[in-house]
């Protein structure tokens, strides 16, 4: 039966649509337009410069660093958040007394702003009086300047992000595990399968839908990483720990290179859409009906 007022119902999405057109679609158009200009961010004048902002990206070493870091933040976060999230979910799913206390604590950091998390970790990595150097001292080691080395700094930032948001993938996997009917495991055990075989041949295939959501969410989150970098290193030392997001804001507000900044933004957008699209279609090929 067709609903009465079948098309007046459509009026309901007009407000949302207008809001998004004015504050997302129009700025997106602006951003694309500015990407082809030499606008500095405040002047009344701007010149159309064609693709030169995009060509400049090819020879900007700092941008290449930011791009590589962004990929590390994105893929590193997604890999470890899902690995730890799945392990924690399997562990907590084994139902021992107090398992929900562990779940509470693992999820807790999700409540804390990424920015504040960066500052808290500063208490750990600070050279003088930092917790890590104190622990190194107990072990009789010389203190380290943790954030001075590029790769160590990038690794620490990735792990803060992993540590903070593993709770989300854990909860997604716990829900996924609970949706798997125990009859599969019973049947497999009757056929003589051990725990390991059950895990690889039942749990993993049936958890692909949960995995697909968790992986894509974490990838997007990691590729967008901004606040924790801003608070912990501001992209430094030099430009060594910038992500594309922090580099975009650096180019706009510090370097006053709005046209160039906007061009990087467009490329970042395309990068995230492509990565998310590739992973989505990869997972949807491997999903099976439970």
């Amino acid at each position: 039966m067709k609903l009465k007022n079948g098309s007046t119902i459509n009026l309901f999405y007009i407000p949302a649509l207008i809001l998004m057109l004015v504050f997302v679609a129009y700025p997106l158009g602006q951003a694309i337009y500015i990407a082809f200009t030499d606008w500095n961010g405040y002047s009344q004048h701007l010149n159309f410069v064609g693709f030169s902002n995009f060509f400049n990206m090819l020879k900007d070493g700092n941008l290449h660093t930011a791009l590589l870091n962004t990929l590390i933040y994105g893929f590193g976060s997604a890999f470890f958040q899902n690995l730890f999230g799945l392990l924690l979910a399997v562990f907590l799913n084994s139902k021992f007394r107090g398992h929900s206390v562990v779940r509470t604590f693992v999820y807790l950091p999700v409540m804390i702003a990424g920015l504040i998390m960066g500052y808290i970790i500063y208490y750990f990595v600070q050279y003088d009086g930092g917790v890590f150097n104190e622990i190194l001292g107990w072990l009789g080691q010389a203190p380290l300047d943790f954030m001075a080395d590029r790769w160590r700094a990038v690794g620490i930032i990735t792990f803060i992000n992993v540590w903070q948001y593993t709770g989300i993938s854990m909860v997604i996997y716990m829900a996924g595990l609970q949706s798997i009917s125990t009859s599969y495991y019973e049947a497999a055990t009757l056929d003589g399968a051990n725990h390991w075989r059950c895990f690889w041949n039942i749990t993993i295939p049936l958890i692909v839908p949960a995995m697909s959501t968790a992986v894509v969410m974490n990838l997007i989150g990691g590729l967008k990483l901004f606040d924790v970098i801003q608070s912990l290193t501001s992209g430094g030392p030099g430009f060594a720990t910038h992500s594309l997001s922090t580099y975009i804001s650096n180019q706009y507000f510090q370097a006053q290179n709005a046209g160039y900044s906007s061009a990087i933004g467009i490329i970042t957008f395309v990068l995230i859409v492509v990565v998310a699209g590739v992973f989505n279609s990869f997972f949807s090929k491997h999903e099976i009906e439970a």
């Binding site: 700025p27 961010g41 933004g265």
Partner: peptide, 17 residues
């Protein structure tokens, strides 16, 4: 599609708007 746009990537457009 809007869900896929990382807010900071169109920072310049939003800010100038």
């Amino acid at each position: 599609g809007v869900m896929m746009i990382p807010p900071l990537s169109i920072l310049v457009g939003v800010y100038s708007t």
